[in-house]
Nucleic acid binder design. Structure first.
Length: 236
DNA sequence: AATAGACTCAACCGCCATGGG
DNA sequence: GCCCATGGCGGTTGAGTCTAT
């Protein structure tokens, strides 16, 4: 407990570092009284010696009553993977699709579990291209809000196909020999890498790549690709 | 039991967008 | 139109905890 009081007070008078329970209490009381927002007035009204930014962050990431505590579930992980494939590092947007989870939490989770190696430039480019195409085709439609579930699924699957094609090229470049063997060995279906059906476990590029898995899943994945292409054609 | 490395997560920083004067 | 205050967001850091050796 002593350690808590080591939180530094910087020159301009704001406390920094870990929050102590009394500070949390003050902030909660303030929000209950005045509501969220106007964070810079928290210090005047509550006597809390924290900056508005610090107060907002503490509330949003830790004190909000509707926060969901505990580990990210596999279902939530799937959503994170899907939405990250679609939107990239727009954590707050992703967080809106996961009630009770914060952007910080999702960001940390992603970093811990999937960021061991960065997605390649090619993959980023593929996603950007996909988004551009979507915008061109639906100019009247505003840029991707958190979409309806079915629309989201389809758009994500389109993205997965695009990514899969891009990743296929990249794999051929990075691992020419195993890739060629794999092509000969059974993935003669015309599509190789992960697809929508495998989005959850495979969209975590880089570190989670496993050539054995690629080979093993090829058939399942290709079926998925065909199904999705049908869906997309129907949709458009 | 000790230790090093990996992992987790709260918190801070800097940048950007927005709105009001 | 410009400036400033404020809020929001994404990136990063660092201390604490866990796990493997």
């Amino acid at each position: 407990m002593e350690r808590y009081f080591e939180a530094v007070t910087v020159e301009d008078g704001w406390r920094k570092g870990p929050w102590i329970p009394q500070e949390d209490k003050l902030l909660i009381e303030h929000v209950n009284l005045h509501g969220e927002g106007r964070w810079n007035s928290v210090s005047e009204l509550s006597g809390l010696r924290r900056s508005g930014k610090s107060c907002r962050l503490r509330w949003v990431n830790y004190l909000r009553p509707d926060l969901k505590k505990g580990k990210i579930t596999p279902e939530e992980e799937n959503v994170i993977l899907e939405l990250h494939a679609l939107w990239g590092n727009r954590w707050s947007t992703i967080a809106r699709s996961l009630p009770g989870r914060t952007d910080n939490e999702i960001k940390n989770y992603w970093r811990t579990h999937f960021k061991k190696s960065k997605p390649s430039k090619n993959i980023e480019k593929a996603r950007a291209r996909f988004l551009r195409q979507q915008q061109q085709q639906h100019q009247a439609v505003p840029p991707p809000p958190p979409p309806q579930d079915d629309m989201r699924t389809i758009m994500n699957q389109v993205a997965q196909i695009t990514l899969a094609q891009e990743m296929q090229q990249e794999m051929a470049y990075m691992y020419p020999l195993p890739y060629a063997l794999q092509q000969q060995g059974g993935a003669s279906h015309g599509c190789v890498v992960d697809g929508p059906a495998a989005a959850a476990e495979d969209a975590s590029w880089g570190s989670l790549w496993n050539l054995d898995d690629v080979h093993h899943d090829a058939e399942r994945v290709c079926r998925g690709c065909l199904q999705v292409q049908d869906q997309v054609l129907t949709f458009y």
